[in-house]
Simulated assay, not measured.
Amino acid sequence: MCQRVIANTPKFLLFDLQSALETKHLLFCADYVLVWPRNSGCTLYLGTSSHNIAPGQLALLAPFSPHRFEFESTNKGGVETQCDVLHFRLNALGQTFIDSVQFSAIKQMLDKARSGYLFDVAADSNVNKYLQVINNSYDFSQVLNLLHLLEVLSTQTRNCLTDCDYDVVDSQRIENKVRIVLKYIEENLGEPLSVTMVANQLHMADSTFSRFFHANLGVTFRQYLIEQRVRQAVRYLITTDWTIAQIGAEVGFSSLSNFNAKFKNIIRVTPREYRASHLNKQHYHANYRSVVGQLQNQLV
């Protein structure tokens, strides 16, 4: 019986350090994943294969690699098992940087990581040095730590974890599909969009599309659609003299009450209150980027 695969896409731009959690179901995400046990080994289930990873070893998984962890809750002496997982993605670095000569060795390693890699990490090695200092702070030094870690790993001897007995989706094909979906939503925002209508653009079943969308966007299709409609409504509230009802209908809300409720849930005030508070801020008319930045801050 096949295990259920669920989406797990943390919300971050470049990298995020987490503690490994034991799950009953396989996880997949749109990120590269580094796994290293700190004080005791763990079992990594990758697709239909399993691998024991001991302290002093490091596993690298490619995006969309179904995986889960299994380990004892406590180590010898009652010490809680510690196993760290570092999720990282490349799009925040920019395509020009990723395609640069300086990044080529790292890119080559990552491009060939679809079967998963296992590294042996000595306690006095540079790999361990960077593993010990990397954390989730916003210091620029942490970006450098990640790049240094990847650079050192690209020079290390590594072994493939599996023969890739599961389907690994080509990242470029994924990006193209996401681009098609987002463009379709943007161009038809005022229409009564449904999962079926958008799924048809990719020739997917509704359930398959819903999993695909959540895995790559980090939110459900419905959540994303509501947020985009509210974003567009904010622009109209600031730049037009349309009535609240007109704006709600223009961005695709079925009723004024629904528009008011969804808008307030995201922006924390009603459309009327939002417009009133911005009537005397003429710079919003002249500077579109200020509108977007201000909205993004409120959404966060």
Rank of each mutant, 00 (worst) to 15 (best):
G41M: 03
G41Y: 01
G41T: 03
G41K: 02
C42K: 12
C42I: 15
T43S: 09
T43W: 09
T43H: 12
T43I: 14
T43F: 12
L44T: 11
L44E: 11
L44H: 14
L44G: 13
Y45G: 04
Y45K: 10
Y45H: 13
Y45F: 15
L46Y: 12
L46W: 07
L46H: 08
L46R: 05
G47V: 12
G47E: 10
G47I: 11
G47Q: 08
G47P: 14
T48G: 11
T48A: 13
T48P: 14
S49G: 10
S49Q: 12
S49M: 07
S49A: 12
S49T: 10
S49Y: 05
S49I: 04
S50P: 09
S50Q: 15
S50K: 15
H51F: 08
H51R: 03
N52D: 12
N52I: 11
N52E: 14
N52V: 13
I53Y: 00
I53D: 01
I53W: 00
A54K: 00
A54C: 07
A54T: 01
A54Q: 03
A54D: 01
P55T: 00
P55W: 00
P55M: 01
G56R: 05
G56Q: 15
Q57E: 15
Q57D: 13
Q57R: 04
L58P: 06
L58F: 13
L58G: 13
A59T: 08
A59M: 09
A59Q: 10
A59L: 13
L60F: 05
L60S: 06
L60Q: 03
L60I: 03
L61H: 00
L61W: 00
L61C: 01
L61P: 01
L61Q: 00
A62H: 09
A62Y: 11
A62T: 02
P63D: 07
P63S: 12
P63N: 07
F64E: 06
F64L: 07
F64C: 03
S65R: 01
S65C: 05
S65M: 04
S65F: 02
P66T: 08
P66D: 08
H67A: 06
H67Y: 13
H67V: 11
R68P: 05
R68D: 07
R68C: 10
F69P: 02
F69L: 14
F69E: 05
F69V: 05
F69H: 05
F69R: 03
F69T: 04
E70V: 04
E70A: 08
E70W: 11
E70S: 08
E70M: 07
E70R: 10
F71W: 10
F71A: 04
F71N: 06
F71Y: 12
F71E: 06
F71G: 03
E72K: 08
E72L: 06
E72D: 10
S73R: 09
S73N: 11
S73M: 06
S73L: 06
S73P: 06
T74H: 07
T74F: 07
T74C: 03
N75I: 07
N75R: 11
N75D: 15
N75Y: 05
N75C: 11
K76D: 13
K76V: 09
K76Q: 11
K76F: 06
K76W: 05
K76I: 09
K76S: 14
K76G: 07
K76R: 09
G77H: 01
G78A: 02
G78I: 01
G78M: 02
G78W: 00
G78H: 02
G78V: 01
V79N: 04
V79K: 06
V79C: 02
V79G: 02
E80D: 12
E80Q: 11
E80T: 11
E80S: 12
E80M: 09
